[in-house]
Amino acid sequence: MQLEKLFNMQQALDQHIEEKHELQNEELFNRKVLALLVELGELANETRCFKFWSIKPSSEKSIVLEEFVDGIHFILSLGIECGFQNLKYAMNNEPPGSGVSDQFLLIYESVNNFKNSKNEHDFKVLLESYLQLGTLLGITYEEMEKAYFAKNEVNYQRQQNNY
């Protein structure tokens, strides 16, 4: 995965949004954290991984992938806020040993840890655990990247249409 390219694209989108909405002097970190948590909940809802009381299956992969990519946008944006866009990241191709529900809980915990510390280690844990969730959901790095590019374009179009 070309994380450097994704970070650059996210930085340009963030700058565009901040200029358009005159947010250059606003503190956006906590709002981005909340946005990530909301997106994470939306993703969990589409996977239905926690709905032990229901036999209805997960949403189709394209919907899960779109929700997943929304989370990538906010994670990258948070990393940029803290200056972590130029770090080197090791891409772990092995899915974690835990199940999907446990991975969601780990990510919620990772978001909170990073929110409180704003340090490089906790950011890497958050990013890597989120990408591992994608792997658990059957999403390849190539699919993640392609979906990110497409959603980034949609986000620009939304800004042009006063979304």
Rank of each mutant, 00 (worst) to 15 (best):
L131I: 12
L131D: 04
N119F: 01
S62R: 14
E109G: 12
C49V: 15
E66R: 15
E46L: 10
K51Q: 12
L65C: 03
A44I: 01
F50E: 05
A147K: 14
S110W: 02
N93P: 03
L133P: 07
K146H: 10
S54V: 09
K115R: 13
S117Y: 02
R158L: 13
M9V: 02
P95D: 02
L40D: 03
S129H: 13
Y89T: 08
R48P: 04
I55A: 10
L76I: 00
E153V: 12
Q157C: 09
L37M: 13
E67P: 04
I107L: 05
S98N: 14
F7L: 01
G97S: 08
I80Q: 02
S62E: 14
G41W: 08
Q24V: 11
G79P: 03
A150G: 00
T140L: 08
F74E: 04
S54G: 04
N93T: 11
P57L: 07
F123D: 00
E109R: 15
L28V: 11
E42M: 04
N152G: 07
K56P: 01
Y148A: 06
K56M: 09
I55G: 03
Y156E: 01
E143W: 06
N113R: 14
F50A: 12
F74C: 03
F123I: 00
I139C: 08
L34I: 13
S54I: 08
F104E: 04
E128R: 05
L34R: 08
S54Y: 13
L3V: 06
D14W: 06
L106Y: 12
N92Q: 13
F104N: 08
E42N: 06
I139T: 09
D70L: 06
R31H: 08
L13I: 12
E42P: 04
Q24P: 01
S59K: 15
K56S: 09
W53M: 08
E26F: 13
L34M: 11
K61E: 10
K61C: 00
K32S: 05
L37C: 07
A44R: 09
N25L: 11
E153R: 15
A147W: 05
E4G: 06
R158M: 08
S58I: 01
N112Q: 14
K56D: 08
G83N: 06
G99Q: 03
Q24L: 15
F84V: 02
F29Q: 00
I55H: 08
E26Q: 07
Q85D: 11
K20V: 04
S101I: 13
K5N: 12
K151E: 03
Y163W: 14
L36M: 10
Y89D: 03
V69M: 03
F50R: 11
Q132T: 13
L28A: 03
N92A: 11
S62I: 15
L87P: 00
F114W: 02
H73A: 07
I72M: 15
E22H: 14
K32F: 04
G138A: 06
Q85F: 05
L40K: 01
N25G: 05
G83M: 03
N92K: 14
E67A: 11
N86E: 14
E60V: 07
V125E: 12
F68P: 05
A90V: 12
N92V: 15
L136P: 09
S110N: 15
Y130H: 05
